[in-house]
Design a protein around this nucleic acid. Structure first.
Lengths: 200, 200
DNA sequence: AGAGCAAATGCCACACTGTGGCACTTCGTG
DNA sequence: CACGAAGTGCCACAGTGTGGCATTTGCTCT
């Protein structure tokens, strides 16, 4: 479960509520009408906030649509920080993601698949997501900063790529319980992928 | 050297010239004033074409800035098609890229580093590039479509990621002759990256 | 409880990207 | 030389994102 620390002040709670309302309405509204073909104004009208307010809460139209993705990686970085990093790094990365998936709540498992479908349908959104992944990867590298930077960088790239492959296989059905197994399977295929020969 | 097949008709040559002028001026102009902070109008004014004409030649402002990147991958796909695909697939991918690098002409080696710096300075451009890479990867997968799709997909992801890592190391100096060696080194680090342990 | 303060919001205007319609020029072709 | 087609320019418009400024709303201190 995600730690939902409620802010004390009423003002902050109110702001958080509009943030959630925007993110929540975004995935459903964009899901119904398409991300590219839905004007931002449609979202603003439905949530009843002004453009000014929206852009104080989110950087862009893409940003609000990808809230679920960002939440995942935020939790992932937290989990990674609280992990004793020993043994094969790939296992560290994998275990951290499995733990992260356990921590996400039910509502997230409702919004995340919707978000993935938005991404699959919109190249612009996909590019934005990939860029976000790149930032997360840089952040991971920064926190683990060791000697062999090239190999570390490569491993991080490989892991995130493997994660995205697992998501692609998960996408059609999006049964929450199946995702960990798919991720494990992808990770266990990494080595044999490298030694793949042609023809098969 | 890139195959510069000149179109017979005068009209097509003219159109091609404006295309090249736009792409060429774009990298230098954006390089001087920054991609995000340079209005498209500045480019149009310098090349003396209307917006209408520009958007018939390029999909977006990002598109014209990334011409060199697209050219690289276009050639890469050609080379890959003309390669006898046998043995370890990773070597096939690597060799194809080495061949591709040999085929690019001098002017490309002037524009490509400029483009990389643009990308490094602009998140939006970076996202667009990553998205383009994803499309290329899908295209590669389509052409090799074999049995074990997951592992093939993984390998392609890994290779392109490794290529991008090599580019990052190449970026500071951008000496054309050094790129192949950097790419070889990155590729030869792939296996050890997977078995990386912590602490180092 | 009331006054003052700071944060959040809404409204307005603007810059920039990208698209579609339409007229005009220019090139290719009979 | 004339006709058709491709290319181009001009114009207007939708949509995204930003900044200024007044107003409201919640917080805090007396």
């Amino acid at each position: 479960m995600t730690t939902s620390d409620q802010p004390a002040t009423l003002r902050e709670r109110k702001k958080l509520r509009t943030r959630q309302a925007l993110a929540d309405t975004a995935v459903t509204l964009f899901g119904e009408r398409g991300f590219d073909s839905t004007p931002l104004d449609a979202l603003l009208e439905q949530v009843e906030v002004s453009r000014r307010t929206f852009f104080r809460n989110f950087r862009s139209k893409e940003d609000v649509a990808l809230t679920a993705v960002k939440q995942l990686w935020d939790v992932y970085l937290e989990v990674l920080d609280g992990t004793k990093k020993s043994g094969p790094l790939i296992d560290v990365f994998l275990d951290a993601m499995l733990t992260t998936l356990e921590r996400m709540d039910e509502d997230w498992y409702r919004r995340f698949p919707l978000t993935l479908r938005l991404i699959a349908d919109s190249p612009a959104l996909d590019g934005y997501t990939l860029r976000h992944c790149a930032e997360v990867q840089a952040e991971i590298a920064r926190r683990l900063d060791g000697q062999n930077r090239l190999e570390l960088r490569l491993l991080i790239e490989f892991f995130v790529a493997t994660w995205r492959c697992a998501l692609d296989e998960w996408l059609p059905d999006c049964v929450p319980g199946e995702l960990p197994a798919l991720l494990r399977r992808s990770c266990s295929s990494m080595n044999s992928a490298l030694s793949l020969s042609f023809p098969a």
